[in-house]
Design a protein around this nucleic acid. Structure first.
Length: 204
DNA sequence: CAAACGATCATCT
DNA sequence: GATGATCGTTTGG
């Protein structure tokens, strides 16, 4: 069963402007990227299910957290139909609650950079591999567990823009084929674009 | 101001 | 054994 790409992109764009909360910090999401599972050369799921990406193959509205570069965590929300391995990487946001906590977690960063970038955002929210696979709850009338991950979707405000995904090499990084990075137009809390670097040579 | 680079380890081949 | 959906610092113009 092929992935419904238009649905995936709609669900990804719908995350813009939403509030994501965990462990005392809330961010307003300003930038996201769509990943279409096994059909997408940029996706961790492209080469099939592994222990790391297993959560992507599970039910939607769960968190896929991975560890990379020996020091960074990044967080995705699993989307679309069960088993399709579709997900959205949460790339940037503005801390709108729990700023003091976020500052503690982010060290000497200026406020604009508290959650601008996928690893920064994940650190500001206090998410780690321990949160891989946890459900993403909807905002409820009752207060939920302080350590739960909660997503509160709101009506998107303003225009959206799109472009190539960041840091993806090969066909998956081709902005003409996969213009699957979305952000709030003109928002200062959006990461700076860095083209995927060609791999450094080992010899000569 | 921009470009280069080192950090540091889970995961996959 | 190589690589990475990155970041912060350093280096150079």
């Amino acid at each position: 069963m092929p992935i419904d790409v238009p649905l995936l992109l709609d669900q990804t764009r719908a995350l813009l402007g939403a509030r994501l909360s965990h462990a005392g910090v809330t961010v307003r999401i300003t930038e996201v990227e769509a990943y279409a599972g096994e059909t997408d050369p940029g996706s961790h799921a492209f080469r099939g299910r592994t222990n790391r990406n297993a959560v992507m193959f599970g039910p939607p509205r769960h968190l896929y957290v991975y560890f990379t570069y020996g020091m960074h965590h990044c967080a995705n929300i699993v989307l679309s139909q069960d088993g399709s391995a579709a997900a959205a990487l949460i790339r940037s946001g503005e801390v709108v609650d729990g700023v003091h906590l976020a500052r503690q977690r982010r060290g000497s960063a200026v406020d604009r950079d508290l959650a601008r970038g996928p690893a920064r955002l994940t650190q500001a929210l206090g998410l780690t591999l321990a949160d891989n696979g946890v459900p993403v709850l909807s905002a409820l009338p009752k207060p939920v567990d302080e350590d739960a991950v909660v997503l509160h979707e709101v009506a998107p405000a303003g225009a959206l823009e799109s472009g190539p995904r960041v840091g993806v090499r090969g066909p998956g990084g081709d902005g003409a084929l996969f213009p699957w990075r979305f952000w709030l137009a003109g928002d200062p809390f959006v990461s700076v674009y860095r083209p995927a670097a060609p791999r450094p040579r080992s010899g000569t």
